[in-house]
Nucleic acid binder design. Structure first.
Lengths: 341, 341
DNA sequence: AATTTTTTGAGGTACGCACCTCATTTTTTG
DNA sequence: CAAAAAATGAGGTGCGTACCTCAAAAAATT
């Protein structure tokens, strides 16, 4: 049987009330007494029964996800997963809400984050690019005792508690190696497509990708990234220009969102060029494209895992308990048609 | 606020005692009353607070892992992971024990399984090959209300509640496709190594592997499996024979355990032959070999995930709650040096 | 030493639920 | 219709913890 507060009280030779004061850091206990109690806790190996404690506290963890309201399939799927997981999370005393913010508006985002403090929100999960405003807002939240976790997109220079997601340089490197191996011995150019290189993920992936392929230069040459910034026509023009300039394009690497569009724009060229197509993020579209054979590899992260992990980490932070690193490590998943389940 | 038993008592116009009788399936309630209570439960969307219930019940889930005592690195790691997860599980009212059984002794295993019934064990997790004795033992356990889950190695023709692990045919197919792509356009033979083809995993992986490579025949030819049945010398003889018979061996596929040994035996040949080496199960050895470059790809399953998932499933079974399919699906992980974290 | 301040103890109530007893009401049966 | 049987209600106790109050004891101050 696990020891209870009563056992501690007896072992430490103090009353229940004192143990309670120590456990919950209430004032009015001498240092020596605190130490005596802590020694008893140590010796008996007492761990607070969190479910009983939460019951007594009538506690509900209040968490907020701040997510971009973009309509890429990945962002959609992320929002849906959060909703889904939130429904289950109710059973574990968690109230999870989502706030959507327009992408590319740091001021708006910062205002939203500021607004979260002062309510009863105990933890915030953010997916957004890092800007000075965001950094300040996060510091503000932390100062007011709110746990802050970033997901998918890291915020390394902030005071966040944790990042839930993959190492995007390694992900890009993985893509690069697979590109190299899937190309066999062919030589030619590789097209890199991305919505915008402002997002740190895209930059990091590109970095890793290049690093993995530099050793094959000049047999394989990675072309400068083509961005489209939500402008389909710009994309089309640039892709057409690329195929006009080089007749030996043998691979395509898409660093971020936009696979639906890219697939469409690339379609006419694929009839003449055999391409190895590597993309990121497993979504409805990329899944279908894997099955159909138009995408060869998808590098992804399990989004359900990301969301569940985020909640576990937030809870651990407010409870000040340990997090299980092995469980919370998000893997870089390599998905082929064959291991798609 | 979530509704409580009191709320449904009030809503159904019955007393707390009656609600309790209905909730816990105690006798002495008329059908009409039961329905009335259930309607109230439905309408208010009541869900039992499991942590409060478990607190009141002074419940501890008692689970047993029945694992092979073999000393392959995978089996070792599995046992260690179970120990590790078990330590954390105590906080969630779970008492997890491990029973080791000698591999290849179905009678012993069946005896152990029979012995588990009658105690207070509520769930059993088994990793073992399927035999008639095991089937009977599992039926016996199920009949006595013990939840049974298999992990890693499926027991499809038994009355088990669930299987936690990967689809090994798909895993083999994945290995096959990667072999094909990593080989580029080369032609030659592929060595398949496995300790024993008695284990269903090995057979299934081989099946999938062949299916993925049959289309390349005869450019690529997959040789008959070399088994070693715990006899290193047999292995060495056979490998030597294979390299003597064929001078164009270009790939190695190891379907199961034994990578440490295989690496050693293959070493002398690798100096002359460039080999694509694909293995299963990420262990200390395969990890090091990936980094060192002697293994190119490891197809694996996250063993921590497997064990945690097993516990969640067992708990869900005894609680008769839903399991989250997305969370419990074990992925076929493709590990390269680059996405090794 | 007397007084003030701090520390400690004793005890209660609540959280949401399980499980128990006994009295009372309702239904069924002869 | 009475007696027996079944169903229901009322109420209590405990699980391990939080949080509160008030009195008593101990320590620090004058």
């Amino acid at each position: 049987m696990r020891p209870t507060v009563n056992d501690i009280a007896r072992a430490a030779g103090v009353s229940l009330a004192t143990v309670d004061r120590v456990l919950n850091a209430r004032p009015g206990v001498r240092k020596v007494t605190i130490e005596r109690v802590n020694r008893a806790i140590e010796e008996l190996g007492y761990v607070r029964d969190l479910s009983a404690a939460n019951l007594a506290r009538r506690r509900t963890y209040r968490f907020v996800f701040v997510l971009p309201e973009g309509d890429s399939q990945f962002q959609r799927a992320l929002r849906e997963t959060v909703e889904e997981v939130a429904r289950h999370a109710v059973r574990e005393r968690m109230a999870v809400n989502t706030v959507l913010v327009p992408p590319g508006d740091p001021h708006h985002l910062a205002r939203v984050l500021h607004g979260l403090e002062g309510g009863d929100v105990e933890g915030v999960a953010i997916m957004a690019p890092e800007t000075p405003h965001v950094r300040d807002a996060i510091r503000h939240l932390k100062e007011h005792g709110v746990a802050v976790v970033s997901l998918v997109s890291d915020l390394p220079n902030t005071e966040q508690d944790h990042f839930v997601g993959i190492d995007n340089i390694a992900a890009g490197r993985t893509a690069g190696v697979l590109m190299r191996r899937f190309l066999g011995g062919s030589s030619g150019k590789i097209l890199v497509l991305g919505n915008t290189m402002i997002l740190r993920e895209s930059v990091e992936r590109r970095l890793g990708f290049d690093a993995a392929l530099i050793e094959c230069y000049p047999r394989i040459e990675v072309l400068p990234s083509i961005e489209w910034r939500d402008d389909p026509e710009l994309l089309e023009r640039n892709v057409r220009a690329a195929f006009a300039s080089y007749d030996n394009i043998i691979g395509v690497y898409v660093t971020g969102s936009g696979n639906r569009l890219f697939s469409r724009v690339l379609a006419p060229y694929r009839e003449e060029h055999e391409l190895v197509y590597i993309a990121h993020e497993l979504t409805e579209h990329t899944r279908a494209a894997l099955i159909g054979g138009s995408i060869d590899v998808v590098i992804t992260q399990d989004i359900g895992h990301v969301v569940r992990s985020t909640l576990r980490v937030l809870r651990a932070k407010v409870d000040r308990t340990e997090i299980d690193a092995a469980q919370e490590r998000i893997r870089i998943d390599i998905i082929l048609k064959e291991n798609l389940t």
